[in-house]
Nucleic acid binder design. Structure first.
Length: 628
DNA sequence: GTAGGGTTAG
């Protein structure tokens, strides 16, 4: 609270001494347009005398709204005190809000603490201030204090608190706040409801989010948007697009933000027809491409398999920032076009854009997938000295991957041993994958041990280690790993593959017979495999990890989801067009070999996307190399 | 005094 002293200075709540400026000067600083009130200050006696002159509170509010920095806010604050307007809740709430808007949270909190009277607005401005500042501790504390003071949380306060729960993925706290929402009777408020849906969706409790969403009588655009985004985040991008269609059928017109989430869903799905449709829709709605929507679209086309379309969008963007450049670099990277990724780097610097840590991850990743060892090393060596980006565990992972793929396991090992940053599961996985490629069982065991310590519940790690033992013919060790998995009640994550034909997504899992064309698919697959075997394809049963007989195993191997999807692609898509499939997990070695043979025999080019990397198969060769 | 959006790493 400000206090007037004899020397006409003010002691602020933060114990700073602040000299009072004449009100006329304050008006000039704040550049207020409220001239009627400004003229009042000129015509009347100077206000420095702090007479009991009546000033309209609206005048101070307009001054506050025009403040451009903390200095001006404090001047206005001092004048408010001097003119005895602190008791006016409208004025003091506005002052609090202006402090928060200028991110002066400490000043805001100090002022808030001194407020003699607080109404729900004061509380929500403060709670919102902490929420926007990312200060969850004070946000929750203030919220608790509010409930203790018997103040009813309102439709402003609750979304702020829910936002913090969402950002922290704090489902427990989110559920507690949901309880408060139910008590408050605000569960049908748009803002509260959208925040609840968003919180549950981002906490990955998508069914609860959907239930709330379905129960809403009238859903506004924001609620549709958070639900669409929620599905994409939870790995069900198909449902995002279903919702988008439904939303438009309901007559809701999307805006740019909604389109960003829809574009994002297309990226996750890797569905080119959908991508084209969404792009056409964006054009038809005459949405100009801002940097966020443009960047999302680069990513969408790249992840739908067309790095060239991505580049077209990129080239057409008027404004590009470091994210746009990084996305384009990453796109070339996972399409195996390392040189093009590297070419973008000097262009980016020429445009005055400074690279960040993700730019370097993308560059190093591009190097490792194109075998550009020297170029990768050079970037890794200069990133800190020249660009001030300190190599972290992700950059080291790229380097381990780069060296590992190139067969330089000893150097990768040295890098791991000399690392000062904490090692994570990604790093060990990269090293383990390299050990598998180069059949180094001993080092693989060492990496796997660290990996299993870090993530004992991830079945993927057990599968990888088991495959390494299998490849080395170490059946007893393989059995041990499999037993360990059983003991720990871990099951292999189900793999599924999807293919888009005529704007429809067809999804397959191993041995899947649910597709209407199942008979045709299995018939063609059988004859295809016979042909492939004549051409030299030998199924590798090491890639099936099931406790079943060898014969059954071969059967399962023949019906891998990738094989079913590709066979369906051969039936359902015209000759001469590429077959694009997407898999949720990595394509296993056996399928990789299978696809090579299919592309050789059928002369169809096949583009496979798995975990965001692309394998382009043309006439029996894979552009991303034979190992992955 | 309120809500929703873009990148990377096996």
């Amino acid at each position: 609270m400000l206090k007037l002293t004899k020397t006409q200075t003010f002691l602020t709540a933060n114990h700073e001494r602040f000299r009072l400026l004449p009100l006329s000067q304050l008006a000039a600083i704040a550049d207020t347009q409220e001239t009627s009130l400004k003229s009042q200050t000129h015509t009347q006696k100077p206000l420095e005398s702090h007479s009991s002159l009546h000033i309209d509170p609206k005048y101070f509010v307009s001054v506050l709204l025009n403040c451009k920095n903390i200095f001006q806010i404090k001047q206005a604050h001092a004048q408010i005190v001097a003119n005895g307007l602190l008791t006016n809740l409208f004025v003091s709430n506005k002052l609090l809000y202006i402090y928060v808007q200028h991110k002066a949270i400490d000043e805001a909190y100090a002022f808030f603490g001194g407020m003699r009277e607080k109404d729900p607005v004061s509380w929500s401005v403060m709670v919102g201030g902490f929420a926007k500042d990312g200060d969850f501790v004070n946000c929750f504390r203030t919220f608790k204090e509010l409930t203790r003071c018997s103040v009813q949380p309102d439709n402003y306060t609750l979304p702020f608190v829910l936002r913090v729960c969402r950002d922290r993925m704090d489902l427990l706290m989110g559920s507690l706040v949901h309880g408060v929402v139910l008590k408050s009777g605000l569960c049908w408020d748009h803002f509260v409801c959208a925040a609840l849906v968003d919180m549950y969706a981002k906490c990955r409790v998508i069914d609860d989010a959907r239930k709330l969403f379905d129960d809403m009588h009238k859903k506004d655009l924001v609620t549709w948007t958070v639900m669409i985004d929620g599905y994409a985040e939870c790995g069900n991008a198909n449902e995002s697009l279903v919702l988008f269609d439904w939303m438009r059928e309901e007559g809701i017109v999307p805006d740019k933000i909604t389109m960003v989430t829809v574009v994002n869903a297309c990226s996750k799905l890797g569905a080119m027809h959908k991508a084209r449709f969404v792009h056409d829709y964006i054009c038809s709605m005459k949405f100009s491409l801002n940097v966020i929507l443009g960047t999302a679209m680069i990513d969408m086309y790249a992840k739908c398999g067309s790095v060239d379309f991505a580049r077209e969008i990129f080239d057409g963007m008027r404004e590009k920032n470091v994210i746009s450049w990084s996305v384009m670099i990453a796109a070339y990277g996972y399409h195996g076009q390392g040189k093009k990724a590297l070419d973008l780097f000097p262009m980016m610097l020429n445009c005055g854009i400074m690279p960040n840590r993700i730019t370097f991850v993308s560059l190093l990743y591009a190097c490792s997938h194109a075998g550009l060892v020297d170029e990768g090393f050079e970037l890794f060596n200069i990133m800190w000295d020249k660009y001030g980006v300190k190599p972290d565990v992700k950059h080291c992972t790229c380097m381990v991957d780069l060296l590992g793929r190139a067969g330089r396991l000893d150097e990768a090992l040295k890098l791991i041993e000399n690392m000062t940053v904490e090692k994570d599961e990604g790093l060990w996985s990269a090293f383990l994958a390299a050990c598998r490629i180069h059949k180094h069982v001993e080092l693989a065991e060492w990496a796997a041990k660290s990996l299993l310590e870090l993530q004992p519940q991830n079945p993927g790690h057990y599968v990888l280690l088991s495959n390494i033992y299998a490849n080395a013919g170490m059946w007893e060790d393989m059995a041990k790993v499999r037993n360990l998995m059983t003991k720990r009640n871990l099951k292999k994550i189900p793999g599924w593959t999807w293919i888009e034909v005529d704007s429809k997504i067809h999804q397959f899992s191993v041995g899947d017979k649910s597709h209407p064309l199942s008979n045709e698919i299995y018939g063609l697959l059988k004859s295809l495999i016979e042909k492939l075997e004549l051409a030299g394809y030998v199924p590798d049963t090491n890639f099936v990890l099931h406790d079943v007989d060898e014969e059954v195993k071969v059967g399962m191997l023949y019906t891998h989801s990738e094989k079913l999807a590709i066979t369906f692609g051969l039936i359902a898509t015209p000759e001469g067009t590429p077959i694009r499939i997407t898999k949720n997990l990595r394509v296993c070695g056996d399928c990789h070999t299978f696809i090579k043979f299919v592309s050789a025999i059928t002369k169809r080019s096949i583009i496979v996307r798995d975990s965001n990397r692309f394998h382009h198969f043309i006439e029996g060769a894979c552009s991303c190399g034979d190992y992955w």
